[in-house]
Structures are given as structure tokens and as C-alpha cells.
Nucleic acid binder design. Structure first.
Lengths: 224, 224
DNA sequence: CCCCTAAAGGTCATATTGACTTAAACACCG
DNA sequence: CGGTGTTTAAGTCAATATGACCTTTAGGGG
């Protein structure tokens, strides 16, 4: 029984996922999602948090962590029957982590490159990553987790950039602002402002109390 | 490693869940969700389908089955560390199943009674059932699975009754009809009709090709 | 002091929803 | 054979939400 983690962050205007280069067999040297065995006395969530730290030196306290599901096809691991519980983590632009015990190194990779097959992942991690990606995209529609990608305080432009990076589509700044501000509990103004490199200062917000957005903030379906 | 099943159906105007009376220790004689050990050579889904049949003689071919998640707290099972993968199943009004090997008997119980604590479930099954219930309610909003509760063909009133039973709230028949019919791929007319005990004949539909509803069919939030 | 840029705020046509009303189709009853 | 009750089916209308687009504001830099 193992846990595997799909850890996402937004850097610049790209959605990134944390990958490791495996330092042990099987799939030695191959790219993979961080993860490892669950210990006997810990919860699945605690196991995920521990692996997060061991393999990538990422502190779980600051990021959103939720279970994605169990992957247990008998042939998914060449070593034999290994069921893995996949977790989804979202965090602000984190420092590039160093490798851990079972990982030669850890690094952020653009999700688009991994999905396109430019990098080949070990095990059934391509499927896990695909499911995780769809889940994040869906979560942004129906919940207020997008703020988990931002720092403690953020501007509405930063928040919009998160949506654009995750969904891969342009959003009208004005309509986005209207939707976010009139959705009760989405964000809470701090009263402070931040100066962009150029242009008018932007108001700063912090995450609100709401978890669900109703009505949701739907992405366009066409995407041609 | 086990699988547990939260199997729902709509009977009359009530949402029902399939329970078993445990025939073995621990929790002998207690009500529980059907489930059992996963075998070495089967997928998690196949294990769920097998347990479905063994413990409740329910044929999985006709119902919607999806994974809910993994429950793995170290103390959830008095026997020791047992991680269970919970599955959610939705089906039309099924015949009352007989008990299986590890179950003295199997029966349908109103979900409301179980949630209220009138019946106490074994293990952490109360939490699993609560999660399953919320998942069904959410699924009805964003997907077209509601038809899984109906037979091969059904009237719009039957479909609306499903929503009302699951959400526990009244829906305006006229607005429901408009929403369903104008949502592309939700239902497909068969051309036939069905005579109710009294009143105008109702057109029959079968499930359409759509999986997701966009925009979704949201339930009211207040429900006071 | 003017220009450029991004934030902030507004307009307007369109789509969707909730509450409500009206018409249609059948069985039953006298 | 026509009236009555019941359920399906269809329509109206105001309130709300959305997408596309425009104008104003508040900075920095030349």
C-alpha cells in the first residue's frame, strides 16, 4: 500500500506538477509522481504529508491536500500487487525542492509537457496525473480553492492568472472581477494595495470563508 | 484491503441504501455496508462487483458504479490495519436481496433513518455513508446519472421524483421539464407514452448520451 | 505634463432561473 | 355523452447571471 501525490502549483502563467527522478528500481531513472509506502500506524493523509516532506522537502502545512482515489489494478506495479492512494495537493509557487531518499532529484515540470507525452511517467502515473488535472480544473469551477495557489494575500489579477493557467484559456478581467467580488465569501479585502511593475495599484485580498461557489464559475466548453 | 459498497436506490419517494446484518465478528449482528476482502488478482472495481453479488445477489451489470475513495485510519477496524476502498452504486428499484456468505440478511433501509442514527452502522461506515450521500447529491447536480435510478425508459415525473428523493426537496415540475429537455443529451424521447393511474399520458424517455450537465442543475441551498 | 499600462467600474444584449398561469389528454362518474 | 378531477405539457414574466465591450482611474516613466 502506497500513497502518490500530484502536487500542482502555478508558476508564471503555467500549471506545474512536481515530479521526481526515481532513484530505485523499478523504473530507476524514470520520472514519477512523488510517493511511497504507507506506514502501519499513520493515516493515509499523514502518510501523504510525510512522503511530501521526505521526497520533496515540501511543507504540507501551507498547501491544500485532498484524496483523489485509489488505484489498484493488479498489474500496475511490476513488483506485484501494490494499491496506491492518490492525493491531490495545491500550493503557491514553492521553492524548487531537492531530492529525497528514494528520489535522485525533484523538480517542477509544466503539466502540458507531461500530458503531451514529452516526459514519460512510471507506473500508471500518467492516468493518475490525468485524473488529478481534471479534478483541479473541476475544483476551480465549483469551489474557492484557487486561492490555495496564491500567497497569503493576492490581487484579483493573480487569482485570474491561476484560473487561466489551470484551464488554459483567457478570462475577461472585468467579468472575472465582478464574479469573484459578488460571490459571497470568495475573497476578503485586506485594505492594502500592491504596485505592479506598471499600471494602477491593485487591491489585495485574502481567502474568504466560502468553500463552495454557487453558482459555480464555469469554464467555457468549446476550447477550439 | 477491503471494498465497501454504498448502494442506493429510490423506492417510492425515499432514497434507500442497501445494508447487511453482519454474520461474522467483529460487529456480529450489527448493520453495515456490504463489502469484503479484495482478492489478489482482481481489480478494485471487479472486487466491488463480486462482493455486490456475493453479499446481496445484486447484478452489477445494470447499475452505475464508481469509486468514492479510500478509508484507511489505523484504528477503523478492531482487527488491525484494514484499508477499505469505498464504492458508490446507483440502481433502479431492485428486488430485495437475500443475505450472502458473511451476511445473515440484506435489506433496503431509508437513508434518512440511518443518517439520523436510528440504526447504528459498524466500523466507520457512518462516515462512508455520509460521504456517499453527499456525493450522490452532488452528482445529480453536475451529471446525468439520475437516470441510473430509473428503468430502461421513464417519464419526466419519475426522473423528477428521483431528484426530490435524493435532495429531499420539492422541485417545480414545469421548470424541471424545461431544464431537462433543453439540456442536450440528458434524455432522448422514445416516442412511446405511459398511462398514469389518473391524468394525461406521459411521454417516455430513455437516457441520453450526455454525461455532464452544463450548466448544472443546482439544488437550492437554504432547505430550512 | 503627457503617455503608457493595468486596475476598477460601468453598459447592454442575451441566457438562465424561479414563480406562476394556462392548455391538453386521459379515466371515471353520473 | 358531457362534466369533473388529475396529471402532463407548454407558456409568461420578472429577477438574476453571463459574455462582450467600453470608460475612467491611478500609478510610473520619459
Amino acid at each position: 500500500m502506497t500513497v502518490d501525490l500530484a502536487i500542482f502549483t502555478v508558476r508564471g502563467d503555467q500549471l506545474m506538477v512536481l515530479l521526481i527522478e526515481r532513484g530505485v528500481e523499478p523504473f530507476l531513472g524514470r520520472a514519477a509522481l512523488p510517493g511511497g509506502y504507507v506506514q502501519k500506524d499513520e493515516t493515509l493523509r499523514d502518510g501523504a504529508l510525510r512522503e511530501l516532506w521526505e521526497e520533496a522537502q515540501v511543507d504540507g502545512g501551507r498547501l491544500h491536500l485532498e484524496q483523489l482515489g485509489a488505484y489498484g489494478d493488479p498489474w500496475r506495479d511490476p513488483r506485484g500487487r501494490v494499491v496506491t492512494i492518490a492525493y491531490l495537493a495545491l500550493g503557491p509557487d514553492l521553492p524548487t525542492p531537492v531530492g529525497g531518499t528514494d528520489a535522485r532529484r525533484a523538480y517542477w515540470a509544466p503539466v502540458s509537457e507531461v500530458i503531451n507525452g514529452v516526459r514519460e511517467l512510471a507506473f500508471d502515473h500518467p492516468a493518475i496525473l490525468a485524473d488529478a488535472l481534471e479534478e483541479v480544473r473541476r475544483k476551480l469551477e465549483y469551489t474557492a480553492v484557487a486561492a490555495a495557489f496564491c500567497g497569503e494575500t493576492f490581487t484579483l489579477s493573480e487569482l485570474r492568472t491561476v484560473y487561466e493557467a489551470v484551464w488554459g484559456q483567457y478570462l475577461d478581467p472585468s467579468n472575472f472581477r465582478r464574479k469573484v467580488l459578488k460571490t459571497e465569501g470568495f475573497v476578503r479585502p485586506t485594505g492594502e494595495r500592491r504596485l505592479p511593475p506598471t499600471g494602477r495599484p491593485a487591491a489585495l485580498y485574502r481567502r474568504g470563508s466560502a468553500d463552495l461557489l454557487s453558482p459555480p464559475l464555469l469554464r467555457r466548453v468549446d476550447e477550439s
